Simulated assay, not measured.
Amino acid sequence: MRIALFSTCIGDALFPDAHKATAILLTRLGHEVVFPEGQTCCGQMHINTGYQREAVPIIRTYADAFADPSIDCVVAPSGSCAGAVREQHVRIAERYGDSALVDGAQRAADKTYELCEFLCDVEQRTDLGAWFPHRVTYHASCHSLRFIEVGDRPYRLLDAVEGLELVDLPNYEECCGFGGTFSVKNAEVSAAMVSDKVRNIKSTGAEYVTAGDSSCLMNIVGSLSRQRTGIRAIHMAEILVSTRERPWTPERAAYRREAML
């Protein structure tokens, strides 16, 4: 299968290791992974803050990059961005674009998957031969939980990782407080929300917190590091790509602290 990797802007700018891990994992599963260089942002930030018309060129860029019929699937290691593509692009194209854009947006959206969705639904595998001997808890991002309804897929994948002890996160359904521009416009509320999230993470005794979205992990680990908890953040892809023969080391996996402060 020919798979296009959608890197997302936050992954490309701050956390490329999660996207490298995704590419390695998909290649290891026997797929041809390509990276359309014309890709940019999914436009979620613009749409969610009311700049819907201004998001049209971004949606067009996404469609131009990924609607190519030679691409079988688009995989994004981000429930938030996959959700924006599938839930927002066609609607905005219909409202402010033209018929060609609607068609391109629909074709691109129809084959866009979040990583865990692709592995469980398309690849139909949960045991990927991963090895990660640590105590881990999982944070379900709002978009993966409510937009694309990723459900128990991440749990099934983590349960199959050799050596990994998965512990439930209390109040897992609560937002971490990031919400993109929400954390900027409502900083005090956001800080209170992530404080609640961190308190629940600490209660699990986990060494790592994982998620399918780098944006949530960035917000969470910023609070974790300021409280000097010693708990690290790691993207799902980095756990799933780690094996006994080629472990994804904590030094490589840990989100750069300077990006969190």
Results as ranks from 00 to 15, higher is better:
Lys197Tyr: 10
Pro36Ile: 00
Ala192Ile: 00
Ser242Lys: 01
Phe15Glu: 10
Ala21Thr: 01
Met236His: 00
Gly11Gln: 07
Val241Pro: 02
Cys42Ser: 09
Leu240Pro: 00
Gln88Gly: 09
Gly50Thr: 08
Ile58Asp: 07
Gly97Leu: 00
Ser225Glu: 14
Ile201Gln: 09
Val102Ala: 11
Phe35Thr: 15
Val167Arg: 11
Cys175Ser: 03
Arg153Glu: 07
Glu32His: 07
Phe178Gln: 13
Thr210His: 01
Asp98Glu: 08
Arg257Ser: 14
Tyr208Thr: 05
Glu94Lys: 15
Asn48Tyr: 01
Tyr138Gln: 01
Thr243Ile: 12
Ala13Phe: 10
Val189Tyr: 05
Arg228Thr: 06
His19Asn: 14
Thr27Lys: 12
Tyr255Thr: 04
Gly11Tyr: 04
Ala18Tyr: 02
Ala63Asp: 09
His31Tyr: 12
Arg232Cys: 05
Gly50Met: 06
Thr22Val: 07
Ile239Lys: 04
Asn219Thr: 11
Tyr51Val: 05
Glu207Pro: 09
Asp213Phe: 09
Ser141Leu: 00
Glu162Tyr: 12
Thr40Glu: 08
Leu25Trp: 09
Glu165Asp: 12
Asp127Gly: 02
Ile3Met: 06
Gly50Phe: 09
Pro36Thr: 06
Arg86Ile: 02
Asp196Val: 02
Ile58Val: 15
Ala109Lys: 06
Phe132Lys: 02
Pro247Cys: 10
Pro36His: 04
Leu26Asp: 15
Leu261Phe: 12
Gly97Glu: 01
Ala259Cys: 11
Phe182Tyr: 13
Val85Phe: 04
Thr22Pro: 13
Val74Thr: 15
Ile234Glu: 08
Pro154Gly: 05
Ala93His: 06
Pro133Phe: 06
Thr112Met: 07
Thr137Phe: 12
Ala253Leu: 03
Val75Cys: 09
Cys73Asn: 15
Gly151Tyr: 03
Glu94Cys: 14
Pro250Asp: 10
Arg156Met: 12
Ala237Tyr: 02
Val56Ala: 05
Gly50Arg: 08
Ala4Phe: 01
Pro16Arg: 11
Leu164Tyr: 12
Ala109Tyr: 03
Val198Trp: 13
His143Met: 07
Val167Gln: 09
Cys41Thr: 01
Thr210Gly: 02
His235Phe: 09
Thr204Asp: 12
Ser70Pro: 01
Tyr155Lys: 15
Thr8Val: 02
Gln52Pro: 03
Arg226Ser: 13
Glu258Cys: 06
Met193Gly: 03
Thr112Ala: 08
Phe182His: 06
Arg2Ala: 07
Ser225Trp: 08
Leu14Val: 11
Ala84Asp: 08
Thr22Asn: 10
Cys73Tyr: 13
Ala140Gly: 10
Thr249Pro: 11
Asn48Val: 00
Phe118Ile: 13
Ile220Glu: 00
Lys20Ala: 11
Pro247Thr: 04
Ser70Gln: 13
